[in-house]
């Protein structure tokens, strides 16, 4: 039947992957997905799944629709969308992850809660639940000495390079670092689990370390945003947008220190990112 060509279900240990044919039109995908789940209703009884969209370009609405189908038609809970990372070129900025559970320190300190596990796989290991209060994803830049041992198992997450201006109403979400070759205009959002580097002006909302990583930084050639966020810390500026014409803040870095966001010109010791711990608390 047609649906078996469009959707493949693969069991991988405790996880189940739904692979969707890249070339099939989206309405066909949703239709056959509905049919498939209806036909196999008894098979699913509460579980968390990953959806791999391959090289397909999907919008957030479409991801929401797929997630909705899964959760209505079966007891399954969609915890993660994934795609081929090498396909994440500028036209593919529409690929977004959805509803990733927010990382909360209390959850980890008090033992692992079920809902969090699939998105923070590396943190699943019970032996690591006693990590320092601000653990970060392996593969992210590790500055703390206690976490150095993890580096042997490092698993790099590709950065997303956006070769375009982020315009009002656009959202860019990515698991790794995000580099924007252009401006982030007012009304645009860039949400990254890692660092955000903007070769241009930031006038919109930028959230680095969106899963709670307070070691993340935001770098921009001109930082003039009314609101930025790193991990759980929000920085606001009432003077944003008041810059005199033609003036520039110059390259700026935003980082977290003593639980608040600090802004500094990206020069001197800040430029020596590789050496030591420039953002030491």
């Amino acid at each position: 039947m047609l649906k078996s060509e469009v959707i493949q279900v693969i069991g991988r240990g405790a996880n189940v992957d739904f692979l969707i044919d890249d070339a099939a039109p989206f309405d066909l995908v949703t239709r056959s997905l509905r049919e498939y789940l209806e036909d196999n209703k008894g098979l699913w009884s509460g579980g968390r799944i990953t959806v791999d969209v391959g090289s397909r370009i999907v919008s957030q609405e479409q991801l929401k629709e797929i997630k909705g189908i899964f959760e209505q038609e079966s007891g399954l809970q969609v915890v993660r969308f994934s795609c081929l990372t090498e396909r994440l070129e500028p036209p593919h900025v529409g690929v977004e992850t959805l509803d990733l559970p927010k990382w909360e320190p209390t959850v980890l300190a008090g033992g692992i809660q079920a809902g969090l596990i699939p998105t923070l796989e590396p943190l699943m290991d019970p032996g690591r639940s006693a990590d320092p209060p601000n653990p970060v994803r392996p593969g992210r830049r590790q500055t703390g000495r206690s976490t150095r041992a993890v580096n042997s198992k490092r698993q790099w997450i590709s950065a997303l390079l956006v070769k375009a201006t982020c315009r009002s109403g656009e959202t860019i979400r990515h698991e790794g670092d995000v580099v924007v070759l252009g401006d982030v205009n007012p009304g645009a959002e860039v949400i990254s689990e890692g660092d955000v580097v903007v070769f241009g002006q930031i006038r919109g909302f930028v959230h680095a370390g969106s899963t709670g990583n307070t070691w993340s930084t935001i770098l921009a050639l001109n930082l003039d945003s009314p609101r930025i966020q790193i991990g759980p810390h929000v920085g606001t500026s009432s003077e944003a947008g008041q810059q005199p014409k033609g003036a520039s803040t110059g390259p700026m870095i935003a980082y977290v220190r003593r639980r608040s966001i600090q802004l500094a010109p990206f020069a001197g010791s800040f430029a020596n990112l590789g050496k030591g711990e420039p953002y030491d608390r």
Binding site: S168, E170, N185, G187
Partner: peptide, 9 residues
């Protein structure tokens, strides 16, 4: 602001 949004669309 609206023009910026429209360019994106």
């Amino acid at each position: 602001r609206d023009a910026d949004r429209v360019i994106g669309l």
